[in-house]
Amino acid sequence: MSDTKDVLLFGALALIWGTAYTAIEIGLETLPPLLFAAARLDIAAAVFVGIVLLRRLEWRPRTKADLALVLSNGLLVIGAHFAFSFVGQSYVSSSVAAIVLSFTPIITPLIAIHLLPTERIVITDVVGLGAGLAGVIAIAVAGGTFDGQLLGIGLLLASAVVFALGSVLTERWTPVLPTMSLHAWSMGIGAVFLHATAYAYSGASIRSVTWTPSAVAALAYLGIVATAGGFLLYFALLSRTGATNVSLINYASPVVATIFGATLLGEQITAATVAGFALIVVGFALCNIRPLWRLTQSTRNASGGSRPLEHGEIRVRGNVYTATNDSQTHLQPSD
C-alpha cells in the first residue's frame, strides 16, 4: 500500500470484516450456518443488482474471462469460502475463527507459485508454512475436541484455502464486464450455491427458521455492510495492490474481531490463542520476505509513486516480478 488512499481503504476493510465475525457469532445463536450465509449473500446480490440496474450497466458476460471471473468469485471466493467459514465458526469463538483465517496470506503466495508466473519455493516458504501450521495447531489443541473445536478449525482452514485459491485466480483474467456487474453475478452465484448446499445438508429454508431481532440485525449488517461494502473494498484493493498485499487484511481483522468479541460477547483470550496468532504472523513474514521488503521500500518512497520497472521485470496486479535465466523461465519477486 503505497499511498494514503490504499491505507484508508485497508483500515475501513479491517474494521468491517473484523466486526463481521461478531455479527456472525450473534446470528449463529439462532440461524443454521449455511442458510445464514446464503441469506447474507441474497441481500448483497440484491444491492449489487440494484446498482447495476440504476446505472444501466452492461450485465451480460461477454468474454470467457468474464465467465471465468464470475464463476471463480461466486463458487470459491464467496460460495465455498462462506460455506466452510460459517459452519466452522459455529464450533469456535469469533476471535479464534478470525485468527485461523489469518492463515490465508501464507497459503496465497504458495498457490500463486503454481498458478501465476512467480518464484519457485525456497526454504523460507517451507519454514514459514511450518510456523503457520504450528500456530493453527496451538490454537486447535487448546481445549479442543475432535467433534468440536478441532472440526471447526479444520473447516476454517478449508475456507482459507478456497479463498486464497479464488483470490489468485482472479489475477489470471481481465474482464470486459463492469465491476458492479461482476459483483452482482458473483454474489448471485454464491447465494444459489449456498442455498442449494443448505437444503442438501439439512433441508433448511428461509421459512423453517425463527427470526429474532438480533439475528435480523446481524444479517442486515453482514449483507449490506460486510458483504456488499466489504467486497467492493476488497476487490478495489486487490486490483490496486495485488493478492499478496491485500491478504494482509487477515492480520488486522483478527485484532478487531478479538476486541469486539471480548467486549460484546465476553469471549476469553487465551495465551495459546495469542501464541498461535504470533506463529502465524511469523509464518507469513517468512513466506513473504521479499514482498514485505518491497512494501517497506514503497512506504519510504510513497511520495514518488511506483518505481519504474527495470530490465527483465514485469508488474502483475501491483506485484513486481523478475525473470531468471534458467533453461526454463521462472519469475520471482525482485528485491
Score class of each variant (00 low, 15 high):
residue 22 T to H: 07
residue 22 T to N: 05
residue 23 A to E: 07
residue 23 A to N: 03
residue 23 A to Q: 02
residue 23 A to Y: 10
residue 24 I to R: 06
residue 24 I to Q: 15
residue 24 I to P: 10
residue 24 I to L: 10
residue 24 I to W: 12
residue 24 I to V: 15
residue 25 E to K: 15
residue 25 E to C: 04
residue 25 E to F: 10
residue 26 I to M: 12
residue 26 I to P: 12
residue 26 I to A: 00
residue 26 I to K: 07
residue 26 I to L: 14
residue 26 I to Q: 07
residue 27 G to W: 09
residue 27 G to F: 07
residue 27 G to Y: 12
residue 27 G to P: 12
residue 27 G to N: 13
residue 28 L to K: 01
residue 28 L to D: 12
residue 28 L to C: 02
residue 28 L to I: 09
residue 29 E to D: 15
residue 29 E to K: 11
residue 29 E to M: 04
residue 29 E to W: 07
residue 30 T to P: 10
residue 30 T to H: 14
residue 30 T to V: 10
residue 30 T to G: 02
residue 31 L to R: 02
residue 31 L to P: 09
residue 32 P to I: 03
residue 32 P to V: 05
residue 32 P to Y: 04
residue 33 P to S: 07
residue 34 L to W: 09
residue 34 L to D: 12
residue 34 L to M: 13
residue 34 L to H: 10
residue 34 L to G: 06
residue 35 L to W: 08
residue 35 L to R: 07
residue 36 F to T: 00
residue 36 F to P: 03
residue 37 A to K: 05
residue 37 A to D: 14
residue 37 A to F: 10
residue 37 A to P: 06
residue 37 A to Y: 14
residue 37 A to I: 11
residue 38 A to W: 11
residue 38 A to E: 04
residue 38 A to P: 02
residue 39 A to T: 15
residue 39 A to R: 03
residue 39 A to Q: 12
residue 40 R to I: 13
residue 40 R to Q: 11
residue 40 R to L: 13
residue 40 R to K: 10
residue 40 R to C: 11
residue 41 L to V: 13
residue 41 L to I: 07
residue 41 L to Q: 06
residue 42 D to Y: 13
residue 43 I to F: 01
residue 43 I to P: 10
residue 44 A to T: 03
residue 45 A to N: 00
residue 45 A to M: 02
residue 45 A to K: 00
residue 45 A to V: 01
residue 45 A to D: 00
residue 46 A to G: 06
residue 47 V to I: 10
residue 47 V to Q: 00
residue 47 V to E: 00
residue 48 F to I: 05
residue 48 F to D: 08
residue 48 F to E: 05
residue 48 F to N: 05
residue 50 G to C: 13
residue 50 G to H: 00
residue 51 I to P: 00
residue 51 I to Y: 13
residue 51 I to E: 00
residue 51 I to M: 12
residue 51 I to V: 14
residue 51 I to C: 05
residue 52 V to G: 07
residue 52 V to D: 09
residue 52 V to N: 07
residue 52 V to P: 08
residue 52 V to E: 06
residue 52 V to C: 15
residue 52 V to Q: 03
residue 53 L to H: 01
residue 53 L to S: 04
residue 53 L to A: 02
residue 53 L to D: 08
residue 54 L to H: 08
residue 54 L to T: 06
residue 54 L to I: 03
residue 55 R to T: 06
residue 55 R to G: 04
residue 56 R to F: 05
residue 56 R to A: 01
residue 57 L to T: 02
residue 57 L to Q: 13
residue 58 E to V: 04
residue 58 E to F: 00
residue 58 E to K: 15
residue 59 W to E: 08
residue 59 W to G: 01
residue 59 W to Y: 13
residue 59 W to K: 09
residue 60 R to I: 11
residue 60 R to W: 14
residue 60 R to Q: 10
residue 63 T to F: 13
residue 63 T to M: 10
residue 63 T to C: 14
residue 64 K to D: 14
residue 64 K to S: 15
residue 64 K to N: 14
residue 64 K to M: 11
residue 64 K to E: 14
residue 64 K to T: 14
residue 65 A to G: 05
residue 65 A to H: 10
residue 65 A to R: 00
residue 66 D to E: 04
residue 66 D to P: 10
residue 66 D to W: 00
residue 66 D to C: 09
residue 67 L to P: 03
residue 67 L to F: 09
residue 68 A to G: 12
residue 68 A to E: 03
residue 68 A to K: 04
residue 69 L to E: 05
residue 69 L to G: 00
